[in-house]
Simulated scan of single mutants.
Amino acid sequence: MEWTGARYADKPTVEVRTWIDATPDRVWALVSDIAVMPTMSEELQSVEWLDGAEGPAVGARFLGRSRHDSFGEWSTTSHVIECEPGHVLAWAVEDPTDPSAVWRFRLRPRDGGTELSEWMQLGPGRSGLSFAIDTMPDKEQKIVFVRLREFERSITATLEQIKQRAEA
């Protein structure tokens, strides 16, 4: 797990890795199936492809609905910005030129299985976290730290579920 940055404008990131005793193709089948992601997340409630898309491809869009005790309920439109089957899937949340977040799964063959990492970056575009920072600018570093810790826990849990499903 790695973190960088302390303020929102720094585009702080978090990344978690795991090794899975399964082929990259088997792992890819799970990480590229966005419909399965809400079953592995407390925050993400539902996901659906938009514009007739049926799977990931650069430029494809999907709608995600989320819920958080502190932020309430919201929805976002994400844009696939990288898609290399068996290797990488990344999407920008809301505006792809100024995203509120960027998420990326990266798969690498390793030791007869797959190293899977999930990485996310806050900002630079505004998000729900921006409103919390606006109301308490003196607490910005703590707000960012707490949110990154939440993402770390969530990503760790998601990777564990992907691992269990891929190895089953």
Rank of each mutant, 00 (worst) to 15 (best):
M1G: 14
E2A: 13
T4Q: 08
G5P: 07
G5N: 08
A6I: 11
R7E: 10
R7H: 13
A9R: 12
K11Q: 15
P12Y: 09
T13M: 12
T13H: 09
V14M: 07
V14D: 03
V14R: 08
W19T: 12
I20G: 01
D21P: 05
D21R: 15
W28R: 01
L30K: 03
L30T: 05
V31E: 07
V31A: 03
D33W: 06
I34W: 07
A35G: 15
T39A: 11
Q45K: 15
S46G: 12
V47W: 08
V47A: 13
W49K: 11
G52R: 04
E54G: 15
E54F: 02
P56W: 08
A57Q: 10
V58S: 00
V58N: 00
F62M: 10
G64F: 09
S66H: 15
D69R: 13
D69L: 13
E73I: 09
S75M: 04
T76C: 08
H79G: 02
V80F: 10
I81S: 06
C83V: 07
G86M: 02
L89A: 02
W91C: 09
W91F: 15
V93G: 01
V93P: 00
E94D: 15
D95E: 02
D95H: 00
T97Y: 07
A101Q: 11
A101N: 10
R104H: 05
R104F: 05
R106H: 06
R108M: 06
R108A: 14
R108S: 11
D111A: 15
G113V: 06
G113M: 01
G113W: 00
T114I: 02
T114K: 03
E115K: 02
E115F: 01
L116S: 06
L116E: 07
S117M: 07
L122H: 01
L122G: 01
R126N: 01
R126V: 00
S127T: 04
G128D: 04
F131I: 11
I133Y: 00
D134M: 00
D134H: 01
D134N: 02
P137I: 03
D138I: 10
K139D: 12
V146D: 14
R147T: 15
R147E: 12
L148W: 06
E150Q: 14
F151M: 12
R153L: 13
T156S: 14
T156N: 10
L159D: 03
Q161C: 03
Q161V: 05
I162P: 03
I162N: 00
K163A: 11
R165F: 08
E167V: 04
A168F: 04
